[in-house]
Amino acid sequence: MNWLKKIMYWRKMSQQVLSINQRNLEFIYRYNPRKFYKTADDKRLTKQLLAAQGVPVPPSYFVIESFHQTQQVGQMLTDLDDFVIKPAQGSGGGGIVVITRRDEHGWYSPSGTLWTVLDIQRHVADIVFGTHSFDLGDFAIFEQRLRPAPLLHKLSPWGLADLRVIVLEHKPVMAMCRLPTRASGGRANLHQGAVGVGINLKTGRSTHAIHAGMPIILHPDHGENLIGLELPDWKECLRIAQRCGEILPLKYLGVDLAITDEGPKVLEVNARPGLAIQLANDCGLRPALFDVVNA
C-alpha cells in the first residue's frame, strides 16, 4: 500500500497550501470589507493614514490632482534633482517613473532616458486622466526617491527591492523579499521576472529563492548568493508591518516595505496579496494563517 501512503502524504502537503478559492473566501472576504478597499488601493490615502500614526512612509513632495495643475509641474520641480512619480491608484507598478539625476536638458531615469518638463507634464496628465488606473480619475504623487540599504542595493541595482509581509489581524505570518531583475525591467513583480526570496520571520534570514517559478540559489543577473542573507532592521520591519495591520481597517494585508538607508518605509499595502509568497518560502501559508485564526 505504498501508493496509498504516498497519496495520503500528498494530500497532507496540499492541505498546507493556500488556494485562490480559500484566500478569497476565508481571508479576503472575511477580513477585508469591500468598503475599506480604497484605503489600500489609494496610495495617498494609505500614506496619510499611516503617517498620521507615525509609521514611516516615503515623504511626498506634492500631489497633482487635476489637469490644470499639470501646468505648474515645471515650477514645482525647480529644486528637485531626483524623485519618483506614482499614480495613487496604479497597480502592478504601472505608471511609476523614477528620476535619478538632472542636467540642463532635463531629468533622467536610471536607464538614461531623458524626461523634459513637457514629457513629465504629459505623463502626469495621463495619470490624472486614469490611463494607469482603469479610467478612474487619479492623482499623481511626487515623492522622495528612496535609497535602498547597501545589501539590497547590491542585490538589485536595477530597481527598488521591496519586502512583502503578509499580515493577518496585525500578526505577520509570512515574508518575502522581491528583487527586480534586468528581465523584470526594474519592477518587483514575480510574474514579470523579479526574484522572490523567502525570509524566515523569526530570524530575518533568507531561506529559499525562486525565479520564474524555479528554485535558485544564485541571483540570475549577477550571481550573488541569495540564501542565508540577513536583512537589515528586521525587527523594525516586522514592527511596522504589524502597525499597518493595527492602523488600517483591512485585516488580511500584504504590506510592501522598502528597506532604505534610513530604515524601513511602507511603500503601499495590498488588500489582495498574491500566493507566490508560498513558492518563495517553499512553504504553504495555511498553517501560519490558521495559527492566527485559532489563536
Binding site: S14, V17, S19, I20, N21, Q22, L25, E26, G213, Q278, L279, G284
Partner: peptide, 12 residues
C-alpha cells in the same frame, strides 16, 4: 469550495 484548483496543483 476552497480546494486547490487543478492548475494550483501544478503551480505548487
Amino acid at each position: 469550495w476552497v480546494g486547490l484548483r487543478l492548475m494550483e496543483f501544478i503551480r505548487f
